[in-house]
Design a protein around this nucleic acid. Structure first.
Lengths: 200, 200
DNA sequence: CGAATGCTTGACGACACTCAAATAACGTGG
DNA sequence: CCACGTTATTTGAGTGTCGTCAAGCATTCG
């Protein structure tokens, strides 16, 4: 159930962009839905994923404040989207070739997918986790210290690893003085260059 | 060295689309080049890839006749492209938001990248190889029998595996009567449903 | 026919997954 | 504010799978 709070802006004269609020884990859209609208994160975060019949979940992308998501080519959605924590989402009634969705955001989605394709193609767990931390840092404007909005299970399904392997990789990076952990969510990158070297 | 043979068509009044021919392994563009043109495969095939400092090569995508490639967001190319076998390429002088490049091809690139992201995120070699064979079949209009244009080493770098693992997975699928091999390039899919089941 | 290349198969080690337990973090109600 | 229960994360032990190294085989081309 989505609750409409207030109308934030209008991108087109006839298209309202209401701000919807979602609680942690709440569904924003689902595989099979008609893909007749695009979304933008106002606050909080979002995960876009697909379930396999085996029960495995594969997360394609995370989206933070300001980012567009839900841009799909086909009429019916191939993926699902959920809020991570309490989140605010702007919904735009827009077909894919509508100008309400900037072309740059489509290219950004392409670029991100290609980048992530290369990350999960890496053989080593440390490389994937290092790449993930660098991506998260970049999303926080290159900050060396930031908070992960998602639990380990999300990171695991994003990197194609298990939570145990994520945890062990984190521990190795911690022992190597590349990062510092404050709780499991708060990350401080101590050696950015070393992380980049791991990713080659 | 690229050889211009003849002018195939004109998508804009001021933009020629010459047909260029490339030999096996010949470079079409390279990381760092200015991304001021898009390409389309006339015949043959193309691999788009990136080299890591470790010497590892990661192939992002293969492109067959009729497909667009070389569409990148940034001014300078992040990837390289090579011909697979003797290939003909149409070159279009076009910026990303130029209408010479159809929006649908950008969405196709996005969709393909997301799909491949999910394939390489799978833990098992058999799943990746099965997904690859299904993709290749789909590219041949769903044919059950087709010829792979690329060697095992390309498949390996595309799936994030080694040639040995590719070979073993192929052998397992062969032994399970899911496929038949005629040489190493010619594939016949004997049990399409079983392949799809493997991919869940 | 011989050499070169590409593919397959085998042996072995390293690393990630599974199952299991311990610890830490979190939320709730007293 | 603390005690408790719940969930999340870390750590440990053992197994399976993939990568590495090496050899054997097939295919192609001169």
């Amino acid at each position: 159930m989505t609750v409409e709070i207030w109308t934030r802006s209008r991108t087109h004269l006839n298209e309202a962009s209401p701000l919807l609020t979602f609680t942690d884990g709440q569904e924003i859209y689902c595989t099979g839905d008609t893909a007749d609208r695009a979304f933008r994160v106002a606050f909080g975060a979002v995960r876009v994923y697909r379930m396999l019949t085996s029960g495995r979940r594969q997360i394609l992308s995370f989206h933070m404040a300001g980012e567009w998501f839900g841009i799909e080519r086909d009429k019916r959605r191939k993926f699902s989207a959920e809020a991570i924590g309490s989140s605010g989402i702007l919904s735009v009634n827009a077909s894919p070739n509508d100008r309400a969705v900037p072309l740059s955001s489509i290219f950004l989605a392409l670029s991100s997918a290609q980048e992530q394709q290369l990350v999960v193609g890496r053989p080593s767990a440390d490389e994937r986790v290092a790449a993930f931390l660098l991506e998260m840092s970049a999303r926080h404007h290159g900050a060396h210290e930031f908070e992960l909005p998602m639990p380990r299970s999300d990171v695991a399904d994003y990197l194609g690893l298990t939570i145990e392997t994520i945890s062990r990789a984190m521990t190795r990076l911690k022992r190597g003085k590349l990062i510092r952990l404050d709780g499991s969510r708060r990350i401080e990158i101590l050696d950015m260059e070393a992380l980049k070297t791991i990713c080659s």
